[in-house]
Amino acid sequence: MHYADNVDYPRLLSRPSIYIPGLAILFGILLYTQAGATSLGQALAGLFGMAEGSPFATNLLVALVVTAVVAINVAVVMRLRLKHQVYVVWAELALLVLLFFYSFDLSFEFIRRKIGFLLTQGLVTTLYVSAVSIVIASVLAMIGAIAKLSSNGIALGIANFYTSLFRGLPLLMQIYMIYLGLPQLGYVIDAVPAGILALSLCYGAYMTEIFRAGIESIPRGQWEASRALGLKPKDTLTRIILPQAMRIIIPPTGNQFIAMLKDSSLVSVVGVWELMYLARTQGQTEFRHVEMMITASLIYWILSIVLELIQGRIERRYNRAQTR
């Protein structure tokens, strides 16, 4: 826990006043949404030999069974140690998500046939577009943040207009405007560069604000001490302020990277053969849309997890001096 508090309040879920109404609400929701009529509900009812029962009886049974399972589950997990609790809950929730996907009656044979192409063409393009955009966006954000903090009216004006425009327009519109609008000026631009340009400009605008806030969070005394020692403004920024601001900047920037990874799917509208585009077109031929969408979704999720892990490592590195 981030804020250590040495008072042992009774655990939230061990309080009957929370636990029992919580279960009652769950039971009510299951009953109200007619859980017995779902495919999982039917399967569950079948296990109890109630597949042919009246709809209300089935609903009641399914709601009761699910509520009981949740109640027992909570009671068991509550007795584990914190670390194990996290793993168990994670595994259970992941299992539920996979079960949800599984309920679509997917053709795994089709997925197996298509996944190779999805990875070699789609994933590679998605990674390439995202990685290049991330690098350009970071550079734009750093320039934008410094411009916003400067006393140069022209730089300030450009930076303000830039963040306003590119945060204000929908990303989809930006992609169209760059891909379809630039040729009007005589610059014919390919789909991939257009996508990269749109993603970079849009995320650069968001990240400008993150970088600016990170820099502003460093106390003024750091700037004063550095300047009083005779360091130039440039050195003060790069040697004193930015290394400290990185700690603040990294978590929201990691967030932006993950968001960008998934927003790169928007460049599929201009025909870039990235993950989303292929998932859509490959599924079309055999009317297997859901298979491809779910496969693509899981690939995005795995990529996001990888990014989260990398972010964690970087955060630990920049926290070293403070926590030692």
Binding site: P219, G221, Q222, E224, A225, S226, I240, P243, Q244, A321, Q322
Partner: peptide, 8 residues
């Protein structure tokens, strides 16, 4: 407030 550079 001393203003030492905490990252150094």
């Amino acid at each position: 407030q001393f203003n030492l550079f905490p990252h150094l």
